[in-house]
Structures are given as structure tokens and as C-alpha cells.
Design a protein around this nucleic acid. Structure first.
Lengths: 338, 338
DNA sequence: CTGAAAGCGCTAACAC
DNA sequence: GTGTTAGCGCTTTCAG
């Protein structure tokens, strides 16, 4: 809380006008004479006035606060997404309060409630898997507009923006198949989560379209961290010949796999083809550079902001699901160079 | 803004008590009979009441909001720090509004002002280099408590928490020197910034203590990104024999250097010893695993929260600078294994 | 222990 | 164009 008790009346007194004139002037209302405005602005600046938005919001019964809830900021992909989202909203004049949930449902419920208590106009969220609108709003913040990004909220009750995971996964798998690999693996991601299921579905679709039996392929889920992926592939390497190509659930997984392969005496892009998903910044500055699926994070963020802002303006608009078509970025890791 | 117009009077009516009794009950005041409290809580829950903190703060003339301002969330080190900071503050019952500045001074001034307008109780910031308290508070938010982390605010006007960069850098350089390297380089970081100067000073101190002439060493600053570091070392590699060991300004730089060396036909940890700084999560899941300087991010975050909270309680307390002693984590990248 | 009344800083009709 | 007046939802003396 700023100590300053400089308020509208103070400015009014200094400028020799009334409280409401000051209010109008500060909002740059056309009802106020330019000269008066100048006088008011000058007095405000002189006195070191700090606008009190909470008071204004209270009176106006609306706010420009957007609550942003991110599942895991230490995951570089979500950090990139968070930054893009923040920019999209601030570009539209909103201010975003941001919170990290560390994939913790309790924490998530808590921060959403806190945002609601601070009169957030709406929420943009990468929800913890398994989140439903009901629990998110605790039956008590009904009508709080929410848009989810990347991961859907159960029950289809919220606007949702995501990449076309199936198409992206299918395309990157096809890119591998074209090279003649027949023993593939899909590695990483958490079983029974929507993103995992979609990316896996794309993988399977490509494989079966290529006329390859799924039995020759391996499916190895694991938590979305470098450590987990590394551990998994190291164990796997001990158990016999590796697949020729590994489609990873995400770039983070792919980095872990690359590391694990190295520890097991194999090289990604040489002994085994590896692909990622998300196309985060690091992909290009990594040896081997990582083939990945670019999902247009900035575009996702832009759509999320547009979607939420539209809903704020028209709460009755039908719920919308928007999908962005990704693009395969071929780099070294997927082209074997023996 | 939550649509709900459920307010204290509504609950009061439902529970058959007065507005103020409800307020007290909600705050769990000892002045209210347990039975009454139960009645009130029940009514509140039934009606789907959402506490309005903005209104409460307005009346109480204080708030539990902390504004967190981070220079670059896409840098994994700062993302880790941000998460740690957020946790420290929320653990103490504060709610943090977070904003990313992308190292943009204008953006930084804007978000600090916005936080002030939202009645933030204080600010925790990783400032853009060159930030002064004066400009941050625009001469108008005087007295807004600010604690800076990692990077100092000019003029020593704010509490400041940081690792002992000199000691950390000196220690990791010494670790290299002990192995007998004589041609070292200090790579990365932005010239004339305090963190750079400190880390470079530690490097120089170790070198001169080892009786080595600084002339045999190279100093190659560059922006703190993987890309910039990679580009720099690739250029450098073309110009003649590389140093035997490279002390990097940060882990991000070290990752870039490792990549660039690889592109130039050299291996970190084999042809050239490389060390990082910050000890971010990736260090262990990287080939070669990266020797780094662990700076106890959680501890920095904890001190930052304590420091800011103390100041909120006692605005007159003297400004404090706290330093945390880092620790060298020796891994593969710095032990040549030819 | 509970109620009545005042007011935080601001906006928004509605007068003048 | 500008001033008056009445609150937004809450906390907090102060009575009772």
C-alpha cells in the first residue's frame, strides 16, 4: 500500500475544481475543457498522485485484472507461453496477475479463488490435468470467465485454445516414417491425459497409415521432465536394441532422451532419430539441433486473449474451441547421419 | 469481476445478524460466539459468497499484494527464481502479482506503477540493469517498499539480496586452476553491469592469486543467451587455439558455449573445460553434466520475502544488503577426460 | 457479544 | 462544462 494519502479531493483543492471534475479529467473525458485538464494533470503530478484502481474498480464494478494460472513455470515451454500470454493481455490494456500452481490442484483452487476475491475480470489458465470448471469455481464463483490453453477443462465448460496435437504428432511421425524407419517409439507424457492421448493418437495414426503394425512400436509414458525421460531411456537401453526413431511427447522430454541416450552410449541424430514437440527456443541451440513441432505459441496466446476478452464483453457467447495447426521443423536430430 | 452481488448484508440477512457481525465472523474474531460464526459461515457458503478484498483493502488501507517484477522469465534461471520467490511470499500469506519486463525499462516503470495503483504493499524485483529507485518510483510512489534480488538498484536505496558473486566465481575459477590450466577465459555477461563485474572480479582474483598473468586470459562478454554465447565461441574458435578452460557468466551461457564448441568440432569436458554459474536444474541432465556455482535460489527467495515483509512492518528499518555464500558443484564439464 | 453509523477513494447520475 | 450527491463492499470505533 502506498503511504501517500493524496486523493482526488486533494487534487481538486489544488486545482481549484471539484472532485468529479478531477475524476473526469483523469479519464480524459471530452466533457472537460482542455485547459482544465492541463491544470488538473499538473496538480496531480505535483502532488505525486497515485491512482487507486481498487477504489475505482469497486465503484465501477468491473476490473481490468486478468488472473493467469500456470501449471509449471519451470518448464521452459510453459514459461514461454506465460510470457506470450502476458504480452497479449497487456497489449489489450489488461493487467495480469500471475500464479504458478506446480501442478497442484489445491494450490490451483486457492489461486483462482484469490484472483476472484481480487475481482479478476477473468482467468486464463493452463490447468492441472483433471481440472473441472465446477471445482475450479468451487460452486461459488459461477460465471467467472475462464479460458484454458493447451489443456482442456473437463466438461467442455470453458473456451479452449490449443494446437492440433493429433495433426502435429502425425506429421512429425510421418516425417520419420518417410525415411524408412519401422521400429518407432512414442516416449513421454502422462497416460490418460488429453494432450498425451492426442499426441499418441497422431503417432498411431501415422504408423498405421504407413502400414506398420503397432506391435513393432513401443509406447513409454513418463512425467514431463528431463530427469524422468533420461532415466526411462537409460533403463530401456539396458533391455535390448533401441527403436530406430523416438517421437517424444515434448521438447523437454526429447532433451532428456538425448541425454539418456548419450549416457547409454548412443547419439541422437546418429544412432537414433529423435523428435520433440512445442519447438521451444532451445531446440536450435542444442546438439543435435532438435526436430520439433512448432505450435505457434504467440498465436495461441493471442487467441486466448481475444477469446477471453470477447467473453468479458459478451458472457452469453457460445463456448468456443480453437485449434492452431502446427508445423514440423526438421533439424538434425531426426535425420540419421551415420 | 465476479458477477455475484452477494455481499455482507446478504449474508447478514440470511443469518439473521448484522453486517458487522458477519464481517467479524468471517475474520474469525474472538468477539463472535462460535455458534454465530457457524451460522454465518454456513449462510456465506450457501449463498456462494466471494470475499471482496479490494473493498476490504480500501477500507483497511493496506493490502497483502506483492508485486513481483522479473526481467526475463524465459531465462530458466529467472523462471526458477520467480517460482521460488512466489512460494516464499505465498507461504507468508501474501498474494503475488507477477509481471515480466523483458529487460525493458519502460515496461518496468509501467508495471511498477500499475502495481502501485493496485495498492501493492511492496515490490520484489529483478531489475533491468541501470535501474534507480528514483525512476522506478517516478518521484510519486515514494516510500513504496522495494527489495531487489540478484541485481542491485542504483543508489543503494533498496534492500538487496544476492549471492556472493565474487566468491562463487573465484572458487569455481580456482577449481579450474588447481587442475593446472593456465590459459583461461571468462565468457558472457554484459560489460559494466554489477553482476558481470563481480563475477569477472572473482575470476581475476583467482587468476592473479594463482600467479598467472591476466594477459594469458581472455575476457569475452556477450548477452546472456544461448544463441549469443554459441555465436561468440564459434567465431572465437575460428581465430586460433581455444583457451583450456572457460568460466562462463551463467549456465545459460555455458550451454551455449558447449553447443558452439560442438559446432566447432570441440567437446566441452574433453577438449575444453567449461563451468557455469547459477546451477539451474538442467545442469545435471546435460552432456557433459555442467560444473556450476550453486547459489541457493530458495534461500535468496526466502531472504527476499523476509526482508520485504520486515520492511512492511517497520518502514524505518535501515536498508540491508544480504549475501549468500555459493558452493561449487563439480561435474563432468570441468574435468578434462581425454 | 452484537448492532449502528461513518467512511476508505473513487465514479456516475443528475443538477446547475 | 462543472459541482453535488450518493453509494460500491467492506472494516471499525463506539454504544448497548
Amino acid at each position: 500500500m502506498t503511504k501517500t494519502s493524496i486523493t482526488l479531493p486533494d487534487i481538486a483543492a489544488a486545482a481549484g475544481v471539484s472532485k468529479s471534475t478531477v475524476s473526469l479529467a483523469l479519464q480524459d473525458s471530452p466533457k472537460i475543457k482542455p485547459e482544465t485538464k492541463r491544470k488538473v494533470l499538473k496538480a496531480a503530478k505535483q502532488l505525486g498522485y497515485v491512482y487507486n484502481r481498487a477504489a475505482a474498480n469497486l465503484r465501477r464494478r468491473s476490473s481490468e485484472i486478468i488472473g493467469m494460472v500456470i501449471n509449471d513455470l519451470t518448464n521452459p515451454f510453459f514459461a514461454e507461453l506465460a510470457v506470450a500470454l502476458e504480452r497479449s493481455f497487456t497489449d489489450s490494456g489488461y493487467v495480469v496477475m500471475m500464479a504458478n500452481t506446480s501442478e497442484d490442484m489445491q494450490q490451483q483452487e486457492k489461486v483462482v479463488r484469490t484472483f476472484a476475491e481480487h475481482s479478476a475480470a477473468g482467468i486464463v489458465i493452463c490447468p492441472v490435468f483433471g481440472t473441472s470448471y465446477e471445482q475450479l469455481t468451487s460452486h461459488t464463483m459461477k460465471g467467472l470467465p475462464i479460458v484454458s490453453v493447451m489443456r482442456p477443462i473437463e466438461g467442455n465448460a470453458c473456451d479452449f485454445i490449443s494446437p492440433d496435437n493429433i495433426a502435429g504428432s502425425q506429421a512429425v511421425t510421418a516425417h520419420l516414417l518417410v525415411q524408412g524407419f519401422t521400429r518407432l517409439a512414442f516416449l513421454g507424457g502422462i497416460d490418460n491425459t488429453p494432450v498425451y492421448e492426442s499426441r499418441l493418437a497422431g503417432f498411431k495414426a501415422a504408423v498405421s497409415k504407413a502400414g506398420i503394425a503397432m506391435e513393432t512400436c513401443e509406447i513409454l509414458p513418463c512425467p514431463p521432465t528431463r530427469e524422468a525421460a533420461a532415466k526411462l531411456i537409460i533403463e530401456r537401453a539396458k533391455q535390448g536394441p533401441l527403436p530406430e526413431a523416438i517421437v517424444c511427447y515434448s521438447d523437454v522430454i526429447a532433451f532428456g532422451v538425448t541425454f539418456g541416450l548419450d549416457r547409454s552410449g548412443f547419439k541422437a541424430g546418429k544412432d537414433v532419430a529423435v523428435t520433440g514437440f512445442d519447438d521451444i527456443q532451445g531446440c536450435n541451440v542444442f546438439s543435435p539441433s532438435l526436430t520439433s513441432v512448432h505450435i505457434y505459441t504467440d498465436q495461441l496466446a493471442k487467441l486466448a486473449a481475444e477469446s477471453l476478452i470477447s467473453r468479458l464483453k459478451d458472457p452469453e457467447r457460445p463456448i468456443s474451441n480453437q485449434t492452431v495447426m502446427p508445423k514440423v521443423m526438421v533439424r538434425e536430430s531426426s535425420i540419421l547421419n551415420k
